[in-house]
Nucleic acid binder design. Structure first.
Length: 342
DNA sequence: TCTGGGGTCCTATAGCCT
DNA sequence: TCTGAGGCTATAGGACCC
C-alpha cells in the first residue's frame, strides 16, 4: 500500500508577513490584491486572528474591511512567498524526489519506498520547516492523495493526522461533501438538492445515479472519492498547457479604446512571458467580463505556434472585434494555449 | 458596493472528413 | 447519391483548484 504525505503550510502568506514583520504577530492580518481594502481585489490569506472576524480566502477586500476595519491589509508579495516556498520544497526534496507541487504552499510526497514510519518522517519535516523558516505546517498521512489532503486539513494549524485504510469510513463519512477535493459550491448545492450533505450520504448513492446527475467522468469520480478510493499517481513533472493574463478595471468601462489598450498591454505582457520561458502557442483566446459578471470568450487558432507579438496581437484583436460590447466591461483577459517549447 | 488572477479539466456543439 | 455513424478539431462556457 502507498504512503502519501500532504504538506500544507498554515496561513502561508500572512505567516510569511508575520515572520518578517514580527510586530504583526497576534494581530489580524489580511493579504490580498494591492493591499488597499478600498480597491477591487479579494483576500488571498487571512491570519487566524483575522479569521475570527469571519474573514477568509476569496472574499472581497471591501467585505473584509467591513468585517474588521482595524485589520492590517497587505499586498500579495509573490516573489517573497516563492522564495520561502522554494526553501520548503528544498527541504522536502531531501526526503524524496517523488514530489508533486500543488501551488505555492502545498505538496504531496510519496514515502512508500522509505524504510521509516511515515509519522516519523512527517514529524521531522515539520521540525525542519519550522527550524529553517519559522513557519508551521500541517501534514496528512494516508494511502492516497485524496485522503492525505483531507487529513492535513483536519487538525490545522500545526497538525499531524493519519488516516489508515481501515478507518476511512469512520474518519471521513461524517464530513460535509464540500471537504472533498473537486466538490465546489455548485456541486455542493446540487447534492444538497438531492438531500446529500455528508460524504457518507454521497457514498450511499448508486453509481448509475451519480453518472446520471453529474456525467460519466465526474460521477465516477464522486463514487470513488466518497469511498476514499484514489489511485491517481503523483505528478512529478509538469509542462504548462496555457498562459494567460487578465485584469479587472478599478471602474467598469464603456470606452472601447480603454478595453483595446488593456488587451494590447496584456498581450505584450504574455508574449514577454512566453519568450522568457521559451514557449510558442497556437490558440489565442480573448476574454471579456461585463459589469453583471457575464463572461464571454472568443478564440482563434493559428496555422502554427508563434511567439510573435504582432501575430498574437492581431489574432487577439480579431477575437475582440467578434465580441459585442453592449455592456460596461469589468475585465479583459488573454490566453495563449496549444503551447510548444521553442 | 459584492465577486482577483493564473491555471486545469470537462462538456456540449458544430463543422469536416471518411 | 443519400444517409448515418464515428472520429477529430475548434470553439464556448463553466466548475474547480490554490
Amino acid at each position: 500500500m502507498r504512503r502519501i504525505l500532504h504538506i500544507d503550510m498554515d496561513a502561508f502568506f500572512t505567516s510569511v508577513e508575520q515572520k518578517r514583520h514580527p510586530e504583526l504577530i497576534g494581530k489580524p492580518v489580511v493579504v490580498g490584491g494591492s493591499g488597499d481594502p478600498f480597491k477591487r481585489g479579494v483576500v488571498s490569506t487571512a491570519s487566524y486572528e483575522a479569521r475570527k472576524f469571519g474573514i477568509h480566502s476569496a472574499i472581497p477586500l471591501r467585505t473584509a474591511y467591513k468585517l474588521c476595519p482595524h485589520a492590517i491589509f497587505l499586498p500579495v508579495d509573490y516573489e517573497e512567498y516563492s522564495r520561502v516556498s522554494e526553501k520548503i520544497k528544498g527541504i522536502l526534496r531531501e526526503f524524496t524526489q517523488i514530489i508533486e507541487d500543488v501551488g505555492i504552499d502545498e505538496a504531496f510526497l510519496d514515502v512508500s519506498l522509505i524504510d521509516r514510519p511515515p509519522e516519523e518522517i512527517a514529524e521531522e519535516i515539520k521540525k525542519r520547516i519550522t527550524g529553517e523558516t519559522g513557519l508551521t505546517s500541517s501534514i496528512g498521512i494516508a494511502p492516497n492523495k485524496l485522503l492525505a489532503k483531507l487529513a492535513s486539513d483536519m487538525q490545522k494549524p500545526d497538525g499531524l493526522t493519519i488516516i489508515k485504510e481501515d478507518e476511512i469510513e469512520s474518519r471521513i463519512w461524517h464530513l460535509p461533501v464540500r471537504k472533498l477535493w473537486g466538490v465546489g459550491p455548485k456541486t455542493e448545492a446540487h447534492l444538497k438538492g438531492m438531500g446529500i450533505k455528508t460524504i457518507g450520504e454521497l457514498a450511499s448513492l448508486p453509481l448509475d445515479r451519480l453518472t446520471e446527475e453529474f456525467g460519466e467522468s465526474y460521477g465516477n469520480y464522486l463514487y470513488n472519492a466518497s469511498r476514499g478510493i484514489d489511485e491517481s499517481p503523483l505528478v512529478t513533472h509538469w509542462e504548462p498547457k496555457s498562459m494567460s493574463r487578465e485584469t479587472t478595471f478599478q471602474k467598469d468601462t464603456d470606452d472601447w479604446q480603454v478595453t483595446a489598450k488593456s488587451i494590447a498591454e496584456l498581450t505584450k505582457d504574455i508574449v514577454g512571458s512566453m519568450r522568457h520561458s521559451d514557449y510558442k502557442g497556437r490558440t489565442v483566446t480573448v476574454k471579456i467580463r461585463f459589469s453583471d459578471f457575464e463572461t464571454h470568450t472568443r478564440a482563434k487558432t493559428l496555422s502554427e505556434p508563434t511567439d510573435s507579438l504582432e501575430v498574437i496581437r492581431k489574432a487577439a484583436f480579431e477575437c475582440l472585434k467578434r465580441l459585442e460590447l453592449k455592456k460596461k466591461v469589468r475585465l479583459t483577459g488573454i490566453r495563449v494555449s496549444g503551447l510548444e517549447r521553442s
